[in-house]
Design a protein around this nucleic acid. Sequence first.
DNA 1: CCTTTTCTGTATCGATCGATAAATAAATCA
DNA 2: TGATTTATTTATCGATCGATACAGAAAAGG
Lengths: 203, 203
Amino acid sequence: MGERGRPRSFDRANALQRAMELFWAKSFEGVSLSDLTTTMGINPPSLYAAFSSKEALFREAVELYRSTEGSRIWSCLDIAATARDAVFGMLRKSAEDFSRTDKPRGCLVVLGALHSDLSNTAVNRDLADLRVQSVMQLQERLQRGVEEGELSQAVDVQAIATFYVTVQQGMSIQARDGASREMLLATADCAMVAWDGLVAGQA
Amino acid sequence: MGERGRPRSFDRANALQRAMELFWAKSFEGVSLSDLTTTMGINPPSLYAAFSSKEALFREAVELYRSTEGSRIWSCLDIAATARDAVFGMLRKSAEDFSRTDKPRGCLVVLGALHSDLSNTAVNRDLADLRVQSVMQLQERLQRGVEEGELSQAVDVQAIATFYVTVQQGMSIQARDGASREMLLATADCAMVAWDGLVAGQA
DNA sequence: CCTTTTCTGTATCGATCGATAAATAAATCA
DNA sequence: TGATTTATTTATCGATCGATACAGAAAAGG
């Protein structure tokens, strides 16, 4: 039961990686098939045979982003010992990753397809869902803090989660506009200054 | 010295207003000439005669946005009696305006052209400049607070200005993702919880 | 060998992009 | 009145968009 037919002549994973970085740098609508085939080093029929369509390729690129770049940012929610460390770690990792010199700046999930065209409605909704998910993820981590006794039950976990995700999403814009790593880290620090007040009990 | 030639048959200001709301809702790249002519109720030659090009029309639309919608958000920097009221007012007005039901959600300057295509490089840089300007504007207001004795000279006005603009820019993303007015206002409140700590002197 | 299967390169599809040429209509100037 | 000027409508322009038809090439099955 070996592989039938002519074998693929390019590395699919490598081509996907290149496509991901292209979408990351220029968004779904900003990348043309011509851009993709040039960067991936293949012709259109090979792209369609391996990835079905531009939209399907983008979805795979987003999944690759989430399992690599995105994971580095959000994994500390599970790792950090306290809710505070989870939030601070997420912001610090965002500041660091958004200002890498060898990668596009900012977050693919935030910048990848902000506007809903006629042609990208599904892609746009997918990313919006992921952004909403990230609020939920943080909210659940804060709720865990409540249940573990770290945070008061009077704390408004939804408002706090929304606030810190808002800061993190704004950092994508700042990173795109050239903010230095130091400034992004300073922004994370500023956001954490609110922590003690936010978890004091009064929403 | 009256007007020569056939008079324009449409209201230029009204057409510009409609174009502005279209760009606001769908971004520069997301709006086609066909979209524009349909919404403005004119044919392509009339658009080009009155506005020169899609890019020039976008620039005028951004200026209209800044002098109306944008002004409502940033004018409190000059009006508010204290630096704190200036920041809080800017965030509150953003939360309110970004969640209006009769207008596109979020900010045209933030969402209007985030990625730089081959065709929109200039437009993209213009908006990026405006975003950097908004940090400078807030920073100058904070500096005024220092000079008036409201804030300590040890305060890091650049970091604080960047932080609050980051929150405001993140609110554009949140607004696009459907965040309620209450949640946006709660985010503004959360950001202000950091104020006392931020202006305490230690950066 | 020949058939089947799958991938590859070339060349191009119809649709849409931003932008205009050409002819006509409506105003002022002389 | 005619000449001039500007705006309008219609019908496109060349370029690019995402996506494919087609024929040849490279593998496995028989």
